[in-house]
């Protein structure tokens, strides 16, 4: 998504990354990934709950998630600890238009399940510019 940030900004859209991690963990994550988007802290997961994002240990460790972890390990990618955070909490993606209307709701079925950036851009391009 970082690679498409100019395109997203041109569509009059602000991106907010929301995390329930601690501030030090978020800062470390930001230093290793994309730092240009605003990262918001939701330690109590109040907003996660308001948007209906579920916790599921079964889905958090689905076969395809375990396969991803295994391939990352085999490629030598370093995996970080969960910092004691809840590993069963699932994420998701939502697009809200400027009138406060929900235009896309994509709660992740499992940790690997995320919408393609192109699919997000398609929704954003259809939103009214004025």
């Amino acid at each position: 998504m970082c690679a498409r940030q100019d395109e997203i900004a041109a569509l009059n859209t602000r991106v907010f990354i929301i995390s329930f991690g601690t501030l030090p963990a978020v800062q470390q994550w930001m230093s290793e990934t994309c730092t240009t988007f605003t990262v918001l802290l939701d330690r109590e997961r109040t907003v996660y709950n308001a948007y209906g994002l579920e916790r599921s240990r079964l889905r958090a460790f689905s076969p395809r998630t375990l396969w991803l972890y295994a391939t990352c390990h085999l490629r030598g990618k370093q995996m970080h600890s969960s910092h004691g955070d809840d590993t069963s909490q699932l994420g998701g993606d939502f697009i809200v238009d400027k009138n406060g209307l929900l235009r896309l709701s994509y709660p992740s079925h499992d940790p690997v399940d995320r919408p393609a950036v192109e699919a997000l851009l398609r929704v954003l391009r259809e939103l009214p510019s004025q």
């Binding site: 991690g21 697009i95 997000l120």
Partner: peptide, 16 residues
């Protein structure tokens, strides 16, 4: 939203 922006909300899992 009041400032005329749309919002894309990306909720992360844990940061491990």
């Amino acid at each position: 939203l009041k400032n005329g922006n749309h919002a894309l909300l990306v909720f992360l899992r844990h940061l491990g």
